Computed example of a mutant assay.
Amino acid sequence: MKKSLSATLMLLVASVGTHANSQPTATESFKQQLSLAEQGNAEAQYTVATMYSRSQGTPLDNKQAAHWFQQAAEQGHSQAQFNLGISHTLGRGVAKDDQLAMQWLQQAAKQDNANAQFHLGNMYQNGRGMTADISQAMALYRQAAELGHAEAQLNYGFMFANGQGVTKDDKQAVHWFTQASEQGYADAQNNLSIMYALGRGVEADDKLAYMWANLSHYNGGTGDELTEMLSHKMKASDRRQAIEMSSVCLKQQYKGCDKLSESR
C-alpha cells in the first residue's frame, strides 16, 4: 500500500522532532555532569567547573568553579590543575595566591600541559611569586613550544633574538617565529616580517617581509606599520607580488610560505 505524500512528510517531521527532543538541554547536561562529579568522576568534575565558569546550564559561580576544579585537580586532571592555577593568579573564586598558583601549574606542567608550561615560564621570566629565573623560563618555554604552543614559540624565539637567557641566535629566532606564524599568530608574523626586512637569521627579502606584515595585519596585529614602511622602498610590481603571496599563503594555511618568493 502506497503512503500519501502528506503522510510521508508527517512521519519525517515526527522523526526529526523526536531526534531534536532527544538532545539534553544545557541545564539537563549540567545536572547529569554534577551527578557524576559528586560520585568522584574527575572528568565530570572538570566539566562542571567549566560550566560554572561559563554560565552554561547554571548561573555563573566562580567559587563553585574553583571548588570543582580543585576536586578534579586533586585527582590529577591536568587541565583542572592549570585552570585552578590560573584562578589563583587572578583571585577568581579563590584567594589570589601566586605560590598556590605555581604549585598547581607545576603539577599540570609535569603532565605536558603546554598552557601550564607557558604560564609558568612567564612567571619565572617576570619573577612573579619567586625570584626571576630566565634559565627556568627558557626551559619551560621550550617544552611548551615543542608541544606547539604558539605564544611559547613566540617568546622562545624572542629570547633567542635578544640573547635573553641564551646566546643570541637569529636563526633559532626565525625558526620559532615561523612555527608560531604558521599557526596564524599575528605577533609572531610581525616579528618574522622584521627578521626578513633586516636580514636577521635569513636572507633579506622585502617581499616576504611585506607578506608576513600584511598577514599580521589581517590577523589583528600591527603589521600595517611595517607594510607602510616597506612600501616606500619597494617597486610597485614587487608590492603587487607580495600582496599576491599573502593570498596564496593564507590559502596554504601559512605553511611553506617562505618558498613563495622564489617562484616570483
Rank of each mutant, 00 (worst) to 15 (best):
V94R: 07
L198C: 01
D97V: 00
S261M: 02
S55C: 01
V94Y: 07
G163N: 00
Q32E: 14
T222M: 06
K235I: 05
A209N: 01
S22Q: 13
L100A: 10
F177Q: 03
Y52F: 07
H217N: 12
S15P: 12
E146A: 08
Q33T: 00
H88P: 10
G165D: 01
Y141K: 11
A242I: 04
L198K: 15
S261I: 04
K255I: 15
N122I: 08
S29V: 15
Q241F: 11
G40R: 01
G129A: 09
F30R: 04
A139Q: 15
R240Q: 14
R54C: 05
K63I: 11
Y141S: 08
G40E: 10
K2N: 15
G148P: 06
A145W: 05
E182G: 10
A114W: 05
S135C: 00
H175K: 15
D97K: 02
D224H: 15
M159Y: 07
L260A: 07
S231D: 14
T47W: 01
Y196H: 08
H88Y: 15
L198Y: 09
G40H: 01
T25I: 03
L9W: 08
Q189V: 07
E244D: 14
H175C: 08
S78L: 03
G223E: 06
G157D: 04
G223F: 06
A152K: 09
E262N: 14
A66E: 08
D112S: 08
K207V: 10
G221C: 11
S55R: 07
L11D: 15
W176S: 10
A139C: 00
K3N: 12
I194Y: 05
D238G: 11
